[in-house]
Every structure is written in structure tokens, then in C-alpha cells.
């Protein structure tokens, strides 16, 4: 029992066996729900104690699970494509406030690239267009609480 059951590599982030800030050996250390998210090998820490040390197959399965999770995250994050790259016929015009509205927040601020999905090059031209349109009073510099 106690720390002997715990696979050494499983606790890479926290260093040492089961101890650290969680305090002491044995069951107490394995109670936390958040443990599953910490590096190491997959979830299921709570049962580990009863099941004994992780076998080689379990380790492989855990690895696969982790990999799948990582990929799912990636897919979710990057799906946007720069709309100007996708369709090169769309002009970026400072005289067209309606088109520029997509790249400006409700308060009149420029929307960052990570949200609008523009590529660096087109974001630059959008920025210039928005700034020109502001000077010509086509879109507001700010519009708060009217």
C-alpha cells in the first residue's frame, strides 16, 4: 500500500512519490478529482490503489487516450480560414463601412486576428482600411453608451 503502489513516472509534474503538498502517503493523496488532468498517465487515479500498479497495456491505452484528447483540442482550435485568402475577389475598401463592420467590435475596436481568423497579411490591410474609414467618419472611433 501507500506510495509503493504509485507508479513512479505517473507523478512527473509534482515530483517525488505521492507526497509533496498533498501531504503524506496512501489514499489521502489520490482523492483529488483534478488529478486526472495533470500530465502523467490518463485518468482513473481513484481506482489505481485497488487495481495495483499500471501494466504495460494500460499504459499504452492511457497514452492513446491522451493523444486523442490532444488532437481533438487542436481540431477545435484551428478551423478558421482567412476569408480574403479563400476568396481573393473580395476587396478591402475603406469606403465600404458595411464590409468593415465584421472586423470591428460593437464599441468600435478592431477585432484581433485570433478571433476574426484573418491571415497576417490581410489583417494588416483591414487595419489600415478601418483606420482610414474612421478618419472619414464612416465608422466610429468609439461608440459607447449612446
Amino acid at each position: 500500500m501507500g506510495s509503493g503502489n504509485f507508479p513512479g513516472g505517473g507523478d512527473r509534474d509534482r515530483g517525488g512519490f505521492g507526497g509533496g503538498d498533498r501531504g503524506g502517503f496512501g489514499g489521502g493523496g489520490f482523492g483529488g478529482d483534478d488529478r486526472g488532468d495533470r500530465g502523467g498517465y490518463g485518468g482513473g487515479y481513484r481506482d489505481r490503489e485497488e487495481r495495483g500498479p499500471m501494466g504495460p497495456k494500460a499504459r499504452l491505452r492511457a497514452k492513446a487516450r491522451k493523444k486523442a484528447r490532444k488532437q481533438a483540442k487542436k481540431m477545435f482550435n484551428r478551423r478558421k480560414v482567412c476569408r480574403f485568402c479563400a476568396d481573393s475577389t473580395i476587396p478591402i475598401e475603406y469606403k465600404d463601412p458595411k464590409a468593415l463592420k465584421f472586423f470591428v467590435s460593437e464599441t468600435g475596436k478592431l477585432i484581433p486576428r485570433r478571433i476574426s481568423g484573418n491571415c497576417a497579411r490581410h489583417q494588416r490591410s483591414v487595419t489600415v482600411a478601418v483606420k482610414r474609414a474612421r478618419q472619414l467618419a464612416l465608422i466610429p472611433f468609439t461608440s459607447s453608451g449612446i
Binding site: P97, R134, A137, L138, F141, S143
Partner: peptide, 15 residues
């Protein structure tokens, strides 16, 4: 105009 210029709310645009 998106904002007032010299107290004017509207403007005639020419290019």
C-alpha cells in the same frame, strides 16, 4: 457621419 464634425451630423462625400 459616424460622429459629429464641427457640429454637423451629415456630410456630402466626394471622391
Amino acid at each position: 457621419l459616424a460622429y459629429e464634425i464641427q457640429k454637423f451630423q451629415k456630410g456630402h462625400y466626394l471622391t
